[in-house]
């Protein structure tokens, strides 16, 4: 382990200008520092910042502070009542202990569980060493992504929360040395391409201050479904977040996002297009699932994820339109 300095930020303005690595719950960062994967010189503890509230906005939307713990967010009354998909996604992730520590900002930036990324004895990992290749291709890749992969990286984006936020079309608000900006979640995560080391749209020094959600669509139903080997404490093999509105048996509004299969939280415009205006029936659900996975590129061990993800989508749509 390398030595590093530690300081605690007192105000948002102060933090946003600080040259160092932010630490929230530390459940990703400290873990990776112990593995030697992350080697920050300076840690800036941001848990004391006044970013721990969940507030309803004048337009009926929701503002979630970056320091709100995953457990608190999952159990927040408004979230449970109006953004059930978010609450369900959070509760399906990690363990109670981890959720008690994990923050909203940290969850947005959690890193992949790819075992080759986490072990620095593998020099061939383009996410750590750009341009060095990818140890996971041809290795143990059962958990890896099948959508959005490149020849340089096939790592899955691990978060459940971010899948729900994607279906809810969240906006991420940041403050940095150059000021504030708001980034739609659709523009926040980057595909690996030839630069898997660049995971998101953040500029150096930018601090996530909060996340906003649009006002809930009153007539919509929301579902998060996570499929995995064991019943708890495991990342998704495939998951689906669905927000849907039907009338007269037809789908009038739908958002579909997938987890466990993509290199980023995976919004499926293809599935949505296949569903809009169509009757809410099993046939159309299956067609949407087929559309969502059309571009899937399985590796040697994860071909099963294609069918599993399809079933996940069909079940989530069935529940959300029942």
């Amino acid at each position: 382990m390398q030595s590093f300095s530690y300081s605690k930020a007192q105000t948002v303005d102060q933090a946003a200008g600080m040259d160092g690595r932010f630490i929230g719950g530390g459940t990703t960062l400290v873990d990776l520092m112990k593995q030697g994967v992350e080697t920050p010189k300076t840690l800036v503890d941001i848990t004391g910042l006044p970013l721990s509230s969940v507030e309803t906005l004048p337009d009926g939307g929701l503002k979630i502070g970056a320091m709100v713990r995953n457990s608190d967010l999952a159990h927040h009354e408004t979230v449970k009542a109006q953004y059930a998909v978010l609450s369900e996604a959070l509760l399906s992730g990690a363990s109670p202990q981890l959720r008690n520590m994990a923050t909203t900002g940290g969850n947005l930036l959690q890193r992949t569980r790819c075992p080759y990324f986490r072990d620095t004895s593998y020099t061939n990992c383009s996410k750590r060493n750009p341009g060095s290749g990818c140890a996971a291709i041809g290795g143990h890749n059962r958990m890896m992504a099948i959508l959005g992969t490149s020849e340089d990286c096939i790592a899955t984006h691990p978060s459940d929360m971010c899948v729900a936020l994607t279906a809810l079309e969240a906006t991420i608000h940041v403050q940095g040395p150059k000021g504030d900006r708001a980034i739609a979640i659709a523009d926040f995560y980057k595909l690996p391409g030839t630069t898997p080391n660049v995971e998101n749209a953040l500029e150096p020094g930018e601090l996530i201050t909060h996340v906003t959600l649009p006002a809930p669509r009153k007539a919509s139903k929301q579902v998060y479904l996570k499929l995995r080997d064991r019943a708890s404490y495991e990342f998704a093999l495939a998951s689906a977040a669905v927000v849907a509105e039907t009338s007269g048996g037809h789908i009038r509004f739908v958002r579909v996002a997938l987890g466990g299969v993509g290199t980023r939280p995976w919004r499926s415009h293809e599935a949505e297009a296949a569903l809009m205006g169509k009757p809410a029936t099993a046939t159309h659900f299956r067609a949407a699932a087929e559309a969502a996975l059309k571009e899937a590129k399985p590796q040697s061990e994860n071909g099963f994820k294609v069918e599993l993800a399809k079933r996940c989508i069909v079940r989530a749509l069935t529940t959300a339109t029942a």
Binding site: R113, M143, D229, R230, A231, S232, Y233, E234
Partner: peptide, 11 residues
């Protein structure tokens, strides 16, 4: 213990 799966209480 995250990647080697053993039964949890929920299992």
């Amino acid at each position: 213990l995250a990647d080697y799966l053993m039964a949890t209480c929920a299992d």
